[in-house]
Design a protein around this nucleic acid. Structure first.
Lengths: 231, 231
DNA sequence: GCCTAGGTCCCGTTA
DNA sequence: TAACGGGGCCTAGGC
């Protein structure tokens, strides 16, 4: 990993064109050749960048560039597309190289998959006498997160989201339309379950007879922990 | 901006929990207090991070941590939530501070807004004799990108995307349903215009009688430039 | 302030 | 390989 602090201007040309005027920035060159251009604020997203696979070449400025005060030019070319990043360096304030090695990677917990597992294991939180048929129930247009039966034996398709928005309701609607055409399953009702449900999504869902349920991840995990302590 | 290369482990606890085992990484502390943890590969996204507004405190390791070889602990706490990042530093290999100043920011060209402007100005590329009614035509459920009239005077709602996927077709369908209930507008036909249209989206659109048009940004810009040169 | 829509989205998973 | 769905999404614009 190479770290360079430099006064520079940057141009990106590819899926769009973008330009950064002359200023002092961090240029970060990773071992795989990718380049990030960071300012001293904003978010984790660089101002500009080139993703791997790509190659970086440091070339001499031409006469016009040298006349403008450019001391070096970086050409970063993506290997599989026409995307190109050009850095015109006017002054180098820091330049260091570091050996990092391969990273063991990130371990996550608490995303949608966990919500789905927890809700499947405690399907009775949706209603007394409910039972799980299966998770990831396959249909012709994709998997339904959970298929269950209510206390009267009627099939229920459950769509789970961390944040319930309109496209999640559309997705569940497509599943319900399809499943209700299957005489072995019909009638199938719908439950839209999310940690948070946007007003537009709730309105659309209820307009279509889909029940909305707000999930509490910590409460579900609490039930899970309490039950596992019994064994 | 502070640049630290260190052997460290990192824990994030907030919207989810995540852990990075001990390895050598770049720790980047920006002027606004935000912290990025980068490995020597992957993408522009850090392995872990804390977004501003947040505060970073460097504290002494406790006895147990010191016994594990920890020489310093960074506690990065988000100012408006319970999100917290903890970095346990085992060895510092580099540590430098740099003054960057405020960045003048990025200038972009070629995003959806530009496509919309270009297509609105050259609406005849969709059909001979077509005319623009207006961009961002407001409806009860949101703005339609472009409302136009074809050569016979029939209203056309145009939805523009850089990449045309299924939810764009759903969006246009909702607009069309609503607008066709308005006797002043009906009948309204639909055009789904994008630089690239996914097969599933095309199938769904055509099944609903929506015409699909692939846009060529460079060609539209060429027309634009050619016309502007006439004046 | 919240909410919506777009992104050089990125990135994993799966058909 | 291409497409689809999720993200600690982030970020800009509208109300």
């Amino acid at each position: 990993m190479r770290l360079v602090i430099a006064r520079c201007s940057v141009d990106y040309d590819g899926r769009l064109t973008a330009h950064l005027p002359l200023a002092t920035r961090l240029l970060l060159v990773k071992a795989d050749g990718s380049v990030l251009v960071h300012s001293d604020g904003g978010s984790y997203k660089p101002l500009n960048w080139m993703s791997p696979p790509c190659t970086m070449a440091e070339v001499e400025p031409d006469e016009a560039q040298a006349g403008d005060g450019v001391v070096a030019v970086w050409r970063v070319q993506h290997a599989k597309s026409e995307d190109r990043l050009t850095v015109l360096i006017h002054e180098v304030l820091h330049d260091s190289e570091h050996e990092l090695g391969v990273d063991p990677g990130l371990v996550k917990d608490g995303v949608e998959a966990h919500l789905q597992r927890l809700l499947a294991e405690h399907i009775h939180t949706l209603g007394h006498g409910w039972s799980l048929v299966r998770r990831e129930y396959m249909t012709a247009i994709g998997p339904v997160d959970i298929l269950a039966k209510d206390s009267t034996g009627v099939s229920v398709a459950v769509e789970i989201k961390r944040r319930g928005e309109i496209d999640g309701v559309e997705q569940l609607t497509r599943y319900l339309e399809l499943m209700n055409r299957d005489p072995h399953l019909a009638p199938v009702t719908g439950v839209f379950a999310a940690q948070q449900i946007k007003p537009q999504a709730r309105t659309l869902a209820e307009d279509r007879g889909i029940r909305c349920v707000v999930l509490d991840y910590d409460a579900l995990k609490g039930i899970d922990d309490a039950e596992s302590r019994l064994f």
